[in-house]
Design a binder for these strands. Structure first.
Lengths: 144, 144
DNA sequence: TTGGCAATCTTGACTCATTCCAGATAACGG
DNA sequence: CCGTTATCTGGAATGAGTCAAGATTGCCAA
């Protein structure tokens, strides 16, 4: 599914630059990475890159639809590979782990209810808050 | 439904202080206010109050379940009056307006889907992104 | 009614994520 | 190969929120 980073950049008419290629390469499938994590990975691949460049690249790639940005409450922005589908996220309250979720009830999980007259929406974003397997195990083990 | 601010504070065993009463009074039904907006309202009521105190009070009231905190992407935290029900929000992308939404399909709008083995969730948070009536009208009028 | 203690508030410094700016650099169409 | 213009660099600045130490003050008990 994911063509090479160069091909993906070309497909959306973005200039082929080392930072862009490295950023795209840095974000693997299923991952949800912070800007600093991405910058670190990029630097191990191509050496010194300004933080600003990483922000610029991420904004350009997001605008082009090559990556997706999510911003969970209490967390800095995270970036992921998977785009184009209307998937959601499940987030662990204690460790912040994020996993992708295919919505169980279709693309538009909730229909517009009453009380929103005139309000027109085009996206329903869902976050499931809970506890990941690891944290559930740890908590159960340490409960008094 | 909402008893006086003093009564509500007493009901959750929180000390009765001027900043707390003023903060509770400042957040009206249906409103979604930023910390600075709340601080401003509080100061018009009781004079000088430190910003830190406003943060502390909001944290205490949130922990006590008297108010609810939401944190939409790209916005500072917002606080609202309505708690205890599992309602959601519709947010205007252009002006940031927030309106409450009763989920159309029940309390748990989406069931846990596949691919989340071991992940246990207790809350599904939904944000509908779109355009409010005012912004829809404005945009339509100015489209080229 | 008065103490006393712990919760609460004040002040001010500080962190973190992100953005703004001006100038240097480099990709790519011609 | 060149020029234009998008990108990148470096550094300062902003905004939201947190941390910490000490001064106040609400409230329970005497």
């Amino acid at each position: 599914m994911p063509a090479s980073s160069r091909e993906r950049l070309g497909a959306v008419a973005l200039r082929l630059t080392a930072p862009r290629i490295a950023v795209l390469d840095a974000i693997g499938p299923g991952q949800h990475l912070r800007v600093d994590q991405i910058a670190e990975r990029v630097r191990t691949r191509i050496g010194r890159v300004s933080t600003q460049a990483v922000y610029d690249v991420l904004a350009a790639l997001t605008a082009a639809g090559l990556i997706r940005r999510i911003e969970p409450a209490g967390s800095p922005a995270l970036f992921e590979n998977r785009v184009g589908d209307n998937h959601h996220h499940m987030i662990c309250r204690s460790c912040g782990a994020v996993v992708d979720v295919d919505c169980a009830v279709g693309a538009a999980p909730c229909l517009t209810p009453s009380g929103t007259a005139g309000f027109h929406y085009d996206e329903a974003e869902i976050v499931f808050w809970g506890s990941c397997p690891d944290c559930t195990a740890t908590t159960e083990g340490t409960l008094s």
